[in-house]
Design a binder for these strands. Structure first.
Lengths: 208, 208
DNA sequence: TAGATTGTTAATCGATTAACAATC
DNA sequence: TAGATTGTTAATCGATTAACAATC
């Protein structure tokens, strides 16, 4: 039923590139153009687009606007999802500000921190609440995705709370593997900058 | 010759978990313990460790310190690599501060920005230089890896400079696919937060 | 028509997991 | 010895790519 994870990732990238091209006044695009702009193969692009049931034409390739719409239907689904950023350090701020510039159906509806000084501050239109209000606000604002940008020490503790509050997805930047009970169905995506950097270092040392 | 990319990523994670365990006074560890702490399978852990040529014992599993040392030899290589962060917004600061807390052979040796106000400031022991000095400092400080945390509009322009300056690896957070000439051998790792978030949203909408 | 393109299946490649021998 | 573990090959699974028919 669900698309392959890698295809989902690429669809997100196609959409961004398609918007770029749309802004440049391009209204149709070939698979090889999309491919070269993302450093993929044209076949892969066509296959991904096939998987979401969109069709181009042999003469003009894909219609940029239509394809954007189609990808939107697939990625965003019907309901707009609300997200919350937990931990308002540099990384949390980076995500909030970065995010609000971009066009997407996702919305950062709230931010949370323990630091009293940050409470009620507004960063790029997002209001910061005290972590004690986590559950209340998640329910009140209908938040289904949490972005964890807090310090590693509190990652598991907050995750436990999120599970209880009924969160549906977590984007975890804390570099701590999170423990989620088996009986709940939460999608977790982990990202660790140190791992990425160590990977670059390894392949720099092994570039033959 | 080189290890599979996925194995490299996991080795980085094993190392962190191993340090955690070492700090708790654990001096040996079983594959199933490592696996459960990272939510992997014990076989996968054993296979990865096999690939780096380390051996445990059936009685006591792996020696934590020895394994850390072995992973270090593999990931870090012989030479310590220097890195530079380019673009000192929230994300750049996040990386610099986050990074300096962690133990690793990698070193952030310099930061760069265009903003005159940031020049010569020191963030978590890292000095900020003007982007005009990019090439000079890369050579002077023997920097081989660049971390791109600048705005998307300047990503390609700076990349072109980095290529000329002889950079070896790039960790690209700008969400712009970078164009690198074919005749140079630069390892590029891309990461895009929006894509990750959209992926979480997709699988939240498709969690059956 | 010739050339360029899309759509799709089959083949290949890479990564994970199952199975199991060896051993403490 | 019985039980738990490691090390490793073979099988499986998933993702990419090659090949090619269809068509504008």
């Amino acid at each position: 039923m669900a698309l392959p994870p890698k295809t989902v990732e690429r669809l997100s990238q196609y959409r961004r590139i398609l918007y770029n091209n749309l802004n440049k006044g391009k209204d149709n695009i070939y698979s090889h153009e999309l491919a070269s702009q993302l450093q993929l193969t044209p076949v892969q692009v066509r296959r991904d687009i096939m998987l979401i049931g969109y069709s181009g034409t042999q003469r003009k390739g894909y219609l940029v606007e239509d394809l954007i719409t189609r990808i939107g239907k697939v990625l965003d689904g019907n309901q707009k999802l609300n997200t919350a950023t937990i931990g308002i350090g540099h990384l949390g701020k980076a995500i909030i500000t970065y995010f609000n510039g971009k066009r997407t159906k996702l919305d950062i509806a709230a931010a949370f921190d323990v630091d009293e000084n940050k409470i009620n501050r507004v960063i790029a239109d997002v209001k910061c609440y005290h972590i004690n209000e986590l559950c209340n606000k998640i329910k009140e604002l209908n938040i289904s995705i949490a972005i964890l940008t807090l310090s590693p020490e509190h990652a598991q503790e907050i995750t436990d709370k999120l599970v209880v509050c009924g969160i549906k997805g977590i984007l975890n930047f804390t570099s701590v593997p999170l423990n989620i009970p088996d009986n709940v169905n939460i999608y977790v995506e982990d990202y660790d900058m140190i791992t990425s950097l160590e990977k670059v270092a390894y392949f720099v040392n092994h570039n033959d």
